[in-house]
Design a protein around this nucleic acid. Sequence first.
DNA 1: AAAGAATATGACACAGTGTCAATAATATAA
DNA 2: TTATATTATTGACACTGTGTCATATTCTTT
Lengths: 204, 204
Amino acid sequence: MNENNIEDKRHLRSIKTRQKLLEAAREVFIKEGFHKATITQIIKKARVGYGTAYVHFEGKEDFLVVLMENVMEKFYEIAEAAFLPVSVKEAEEMIHKQTNEFLKMAEDEQKMLQVFEQAIGISPLVSEKWKNIREKFIQRISEDIAYAQRNGLARKDVHNELVARGWFFTNEMYLWEIVRNEYEHPVEQIAKNIASIYIKGLYL
Amino acid sequence: MNENNIEDKRHLRSIKTRQKLLEAAREVFIKEGFHKATITQIIKKARVGYGTAYVHFEGKEDFLVVLMENVMEKFYEIAEAAFLPVSVKEAEEMIHKQTNEFLKMAEDEQKMLQVFEQAIGISPLVSEKWKNIREKFIQRISEDIAYAQRNGLARKDVHNELVARGWFFTNEMYLWEIVRNEYEHPVEQIAKNIASIYIKGLYL
DNA sequence: AAAGAATATGACACAGTGTCAATAATATAA
DNA sequence: TTATATTATTGACACTGTGTCATATTCTTT
């Protein structure tokens, strides 16, 4: 038979095992948090042998990195949304919408993001992942600001990248607050307030 | 002799041991980072027995919490600075100054803050400590905004606490960037840009 | 100097990690 | 079908780190 046959029973079993492990890892991470979660808990839940975990993944970190790929995709989608307003009013709407979507994500993916936040402090690998997301957003926002500046919509006396960074940081920290359940205000209201300051501060 | 005698040799020795442990812990944390640092490394550097560490501290977390007290103090000082401007211009100066001081702290205490950042993800105790600092700042900024709103210096159509939080978040994240050496711009320039947006966005 | 109190110590039990030689399951060739 | 090769799984093992506790040491008091 051909080498990459999907019919290959061995290969199929391997894929299933991997899947079982991933699902178990997800549950254990969410229940225990990244730091307290152990390989033993994961393999027991997946009903496989200890060594098997290390056949499919390099360690605890690797489990999480793979699990996050999914969530990462969603972030990238938001970051990549087109942004070419022709008026301040339009810019306002777009910014408000993007902020809203970004913060909604915190609610949707709360559990996994909780785990992710913990892991950022511990694992350089995970930390790098998050940095990628952040830089993607910041780069995107920087470009948007530069565009608005060129078109006479925004102030030109500020450094676009520095402002973009600052603006994203506000968004990011609110994201973590929501993830931690440390906020008392609806996402909608948060978005409205922070976007309002940003827009009046930057746009003409 | 009286019970709290400073002359008591035992008590003196105990204090010295504790001090040796703290200094050793500081060095080990800075060299290895919080996660990689071990009690064994600390007691070897301090030249005391293993169990001694547990006589004076409850564990790795406790070492760091005590070491941070010092740094925390400095943050509180900045947060507590009086802020009662009579004009927008004056507000501008004050905000700019406070931002600058806050970010300078990142440079001054970079090493310990690096350790602290790691530990925040791992230890609830340390995390709580940082949350205290954050809330102190936010409360203070909220009051400042409310004051400015009452005196007709700032917009009244925004929620003071939500804005304060957002503004502090920008500052905080820049602090961490500086701590991680991930910034290319001088502190002064960062402060100028972010404060500029904030002021134009909020003040009249 | 002997009893008593405070401090320091390291061996021990326990928990988790990552590796690897052995075993089981499946595929291919004879 | 049987023998052989390939791939996947497994858990015992060596290691590293933690926190505890009975014992030893050092100092104080009587």
